Every structure is written in structure tokens, then in C-alpha cells.
Computed example of a mutant assay.
Amino acid sequence: MLRAVGSGASVVVCSTCRLSTESREDTKGRRGGALLAEAIATVRASDPVYEGVAVQEMPCLFACQRHCTVHVRGPGKIGYVLGDFTPGEAAARAILDYAVRHAQSEEGVVRYADWPQGVKGHFIVRTPPEGFVCS
């Protein structure tokens, strides 16, 4: 069930997420998570600033009350699950911009003033790194 991936900074995209609260798939039968993963991969490939952040896909992050969810994570850092995105370039760029700032931070904490507008209001949960809790 587990598949090894790189341990560096990454955005894990739920590839099976619903398209929206109303629809599971688009008119071509594609899930929102798959569309978001494709958009993130395309934006990542278009700009070298994103090279330090891997894009990984995983079926189901178990955030099924939400749609189009991602997990931003890095070794020894607080991770964040975000959701309710509309798949496309704007969401992909905001997620990657946040992930770059997350990767550059010491503990995974990015000042609110430095959050891209496109991620504000999308945070669902934060996860402590293994062996730590937040104080």
C-alpha cells in the first residue's frame, strides 16, 4: 500500500478528490484531484523556482468532506492540508508559491502576510512532524 517517494519538500495531491461540492467529475469524467495534480505539475515544470518542491499524487487524503485537497509537507516541518480549490493554473500557482515559502521556512511556519492570496481560506488542518508537537 505504501510507495516510497523522496523525503524533501513536496505537495501531495489527492488524485481522487471530487471536482467540487456539487460534482464528482468534469464532463469528460475526470476527477478534480487529477485535474489539480495535472495543473500543479504543469505550473511546476514552467518555472525553475518550483524545482525544489516535488509533486506527488496519492489516492484519497481522507478529506472527503472537502474537494481538491493537497498536503504541503517537508522533513522536520509542520505540514498542512488545504482544500476546496478549483483545479487550474491559479490554484496550482498559489499552492506552489506557498510550498516554496514552506520549504524555505525553518519549521514549516509561513507568516500570514507571506501567504499567497490563493491559499487563504483553504487550510483544513496542520500536522506536526514525527517526534514533535507544536507548543
Rank of each mutant, 00 (worst) to 15 (best):
R18T: 01
G29P: 10
G6P: 05
P75W: 01
G32M: 02
L61K: 01
V5H: 12
T69P: 14
P59D: 14
E130M: 06
V100P: 00
A99H: 07
R18W: 04
M1N: 04
G88A: 02
R31M: 09
H122M: 05
E107M: 07
V43M: 03
A41R: 11
E130W: 09
I124C: 12
I78C: 00
V55N: 00
Q56K: 10
D97I: 00
S23N: 14
K77T: 01
Q65S: 12
P129F: 01
G8K: 04
L2G: 14
V5A: 10
W115H: 14
G33M: 09
D26F: 03
E22A: 12
A113C: 02
P59H: 06
L35H: 12
P116R: 01
R31L: 14
H67W: 15
P87Q: 06
A90F: 08
G6H: 10
A54C: 05
C64L: 02
P129Q: 08
V125E: 15
M1V: 02
K28V: 00
P59M: 04
C60D: 15
I124Y: 15
T69H: 15
Q117F: 05
G108L: 03
H102G: 04
S15R: 04
T21Q: 14
S15G: 08
R18K: 08
I124A: 02
V133D: 12
